[in-house]
Each structure stands twice: as structure tokens, then as C-alpha cells.
Design a protein around this nucleic acid. Structure first.
Lengths: 154, 154
DNA sequence: GGCAATCAGTTTCATTTGAAACTAATATAA
DNA sequence: TTATATTAGTTTCAAATGAAACTGATTGCC
């Protein structure tokens, strides 16, 4: 009598982690294409610019924290942005290990071009949802974001 | 009078594409760690196994379609799974280009171990949501999934 | 039949990513 | 002070990924 216990079915298309991963990858890819074609900007570069555009004069470590990037990714992104003249770096006077990063004038200019595009993209996504659905989505995401996923795995 | 037009603010933490990407990456990383530590299985390998576990005897192209993977990723994942003896491949009698893939007995065994873990993980995520929130999340995801993202970018 | 176009799957090569080691500066503490 | 540990950021090296070229099989069309 093989397989007496029925195995609960796992259908990938309905599996939440799979759905989130594929949806978010599709969104990220289209956005990445938009940014890279028009502005020669990778996703980590764009994240760094977005953070520095809103909060200038912070260190690489702070950029990493705010942008959910690791410090290696930030180091590389900032190096490229500096090479393109979009970010300027100074040394913190009180701690010469720390850098003080900010968009250059050229970086600012690009930032101001991208922000409306990014917001329009988001609005196009949200347009399909009712106000109530948007509120629920926000609440759900906040709840999932606040979970300690590492401890979820036993 | 510089900057007469106020720039609409873009706060990354509230930006939907950013939220989806970081949340889904965190979930994927914890799951990947779970699978790889216990079962020596990467995400693409796990996806292939999940698909073949539910729908055996399909071709690599079908695996790719169902698993939202490109054919290169499937080719590599299947090669590794075959090397580990978890997947068996035959040649389709009617078309000798096409392969017919299925889990081996060893693959089946692992599959049956993983499915309950995966479902438990999902359940732990969903446990925090009310029935109504779950239904709304499902509806929202379906709506976003059905969007033609490529055309969203003008 | 025979020849071009298409399709399934693989391989190659360049780029990206991630983990760990590393450098330089600062903090801690004997 | 002077060792020791910690922190900020970079570099290195191996593995993962993606795009394009490739191989072998099939189809469509003359």
C-alpha cells in the first residue's frame, strides 16, 4: 500500500514565495531596462542615487542600510557613480574611514528626471487597485516586512 | 528662484517596486538557505523539482514555462539534478530533440520531504493575515500578475 | 527529394554577485 | 602609551547569471 498518506499538493503558481519572486522579478526587470537604457544606471546604482537624492551627505554604510544593499554592492555602485561624475565623495572630518556621499550637480539632474518616471510607474501599477485594496496591500506588506523571516525556518 | 516646482518625493521605503523586491528577496534567501543546507538544492533546482513532482514526464521547455525560468537555467538545473541522480531523462520517441523529464525515486523521496516544509513556511507567512486579507492579497497579486508590465513603460 | 527556417536544448563567454580576506582608521583597555 | 579589537570600505576569487552562438532534429515549402 504505497503512499497511504496523501501528500498535500504544492502548486507552484499558487505558492506565495514563488508568486512574490516572479512578480517582483518581472517588475524589477522592466524597471531596470527603463533605467539602464535611458540613464545608464543599474538597480543598485539607482538605489544609491535615490537614497542620496533624498538624504544627502551620508556614509556608504548608511546608504547600505537604507537601501537594503550590502556594503560590497554599495561600494561598487558608488565607484561607478563617481566614475560617471554622478556622486561626489568627501572624507568625514571626524572619522577618516567614513565617507560623506552626495549627488553631484549632474547626479541631481538625473535624479530629478527619474523620480517622476518612477512615481508614474508605481502609479500605473497601483491604478488597477481600489483605495481599499491599496490600503490593505500596504498593511499586508508592512506585516510581512516586519516578520523575522530567519526565525521562521524553525 | 531655483527649484520653483517642488519635486514629488520618492521615499524608497514606501515605493512599491522596492518593497516587493526587498521582501521577496528576503523570503527567497531564507528559503534558499533552507533548501541548500538540508537538501543541497538551489532555487532553480528546487523549482524544477517542484514542477516535475507535480507534473512528471514533461520537456525542459515545459518546465521552463511553468517555472518562470529561462531555458538556460532549466538546462543547467536539470544537468545538476541528473548528476545527483534526482531527475531522469528520456528522449521523446516522436521528436528526438525533446526530452522527457521526471523525478527519480531518490528525487521523489526528497520532493516528499520538501513539500511539507515549503507549505509550512508559506503557512507561517500567511498566519499573520486574516482570511479577508489573504483573499485580498490573492486578488491583488492576480491583478498585478496579469498586467503587461512591458507596456507599462510608455 | 532537398534546402531554408524553426525548434529543443547546450555551450561559451562576459558580466554580476557573494563570501571572505584585506587595508586603513578608530576605539578600547591594559 | 601600546597592543587588541572593531569599524568603514575595498579587493579578490569563485560561483551564478544572461545573451548570443552553437548543435542536432524537425518542419515547411519549392
Amino acid at each position: 500500500m504505497p503512499n497511504a498518506e496523501a501528500l498535500a499538493a504544492l502548486r507552484l503558481p499558487g505558492f506565495l514565495p514563488y508568486r512574490l519572486a516572479t512578480l517582483s522579478n518581472r517588475i524589477s526587470r522592466t524597471i531596470a531596462r527603463l533605467y539602464s537604457e535611458r540613464f545608464d544606471l543599474s538597480i543598485p546604482e539607482w538605489r544609491c542615487m535615490a537614497i542620496l537624492g533624498e538624504t544627502p551627505d551620508i556614509s556608504a554604510t548608511e546608504v547600505a542600510e537604507r537601501g537594503a544593499l550590502d556594503k560590497v554592492a554599495v561600494s561598487r555602485a558608488i565607484a561607478r557613480l563617481r566614475a560617471k561624475g554622478r556622486v561626489e565623495r568627501h572624507i568625514a572630518p571626524d572619522d577618516r574611514r567614513r565617507s560623506v556621499l552626495a549627488l553631484s550637480a549632474a547626479g541631481e539632474k538625473i535624479y530629478r528626471e527619474i523620480v517622476p518616471l518612477a512615481l508614474a510607474y508605481e502609479e500605473a501599477l497601483l491604478k488597477r487597485l481600489s483605495d481599499e485594496e491599496r490600503a490593505t496591500l500596504d498593511r499586508i506588506l508592512r506585516r510581512l516586512e516586519s516578520m523575522d523571516l530567519e526565525k521562521l525556518v524553525e
